[in-house]
Design a protein around this nucleic acid. Sequence first.
DNA 1: ATGGTAGAGGATCTA
Length: 255
Amino acid sequence: MKLATWNVNSLKVRLPQVLDWLQQQQPDVLCLQETKLTDENFPQHDLAEAGYHSLFAGQKTYNGVAILSKQPGSTLVTAIPDFADEQKRVLAATFGELRVICIYVPNGEAVESTKYEYKLKWLQALHVWLGYELKNHPKLAILGDYNIAPDDRDVHDPEAWAGSVLCSQPERDAFLELLNLGFADSFRLFDQPEKTYSWWDYRMMAFRRNRGLRIDHILLSHMLVEHCNACRIDKATRKLERPSDHAPVIAELSW
DNA sequence: ATGGTAGAGGATCTA
């Protein structure tokens, strides 16, 4: 069982890369963020030809999430319950006993901005919802773009980024609170190469200089942790022509 | 030096 997440930054532009990657990696589940597509424009037929079912919650221009899977999913949820939000940032589905939630956490822009306040409120609402989800679905995986670098190890230049959005203590505390519900950061279950990141700014040759952050994560509930054999980031996709600024994260589970 | 690039959509907004 292979679970993966990838912020594609426009599925319209990245569809050929996604189809190639599915062919190469053969994940059982792939969560996508920033599809930037309305539902009527979602390329479900191309993905079906590649052998994948599609679930999606999109909007025009911004945001948008999807779950691609070899087996069909059920019990779809497309919003955080009891949290008013115009933006399409969550998608939950069930595959047998496995519950998968795809999230695109707000970026937050800057710590003094209203978008940052929205980010922290959004994370609090997510926390409440995940508490319920975990009770109902003990085998729960939360995959996505968290827009949080949990630790200084996850930042190419911790001093330069100290206190900034994506690294600020309130954001890191919110991430820890999610873990405290009963999840583990699957990447940190294993020895990892130093300076491994999942996102590099398009500007200033950030990828070539490996000036990145690890902000894309796969959280596994304790019942899934015991089945997890590996977690890695596939930075090869960042070297392609017209890449996404994010690389996929992959967790492997013996199932 | 507060820049730079990418995507959507058609002037800026978001990241």
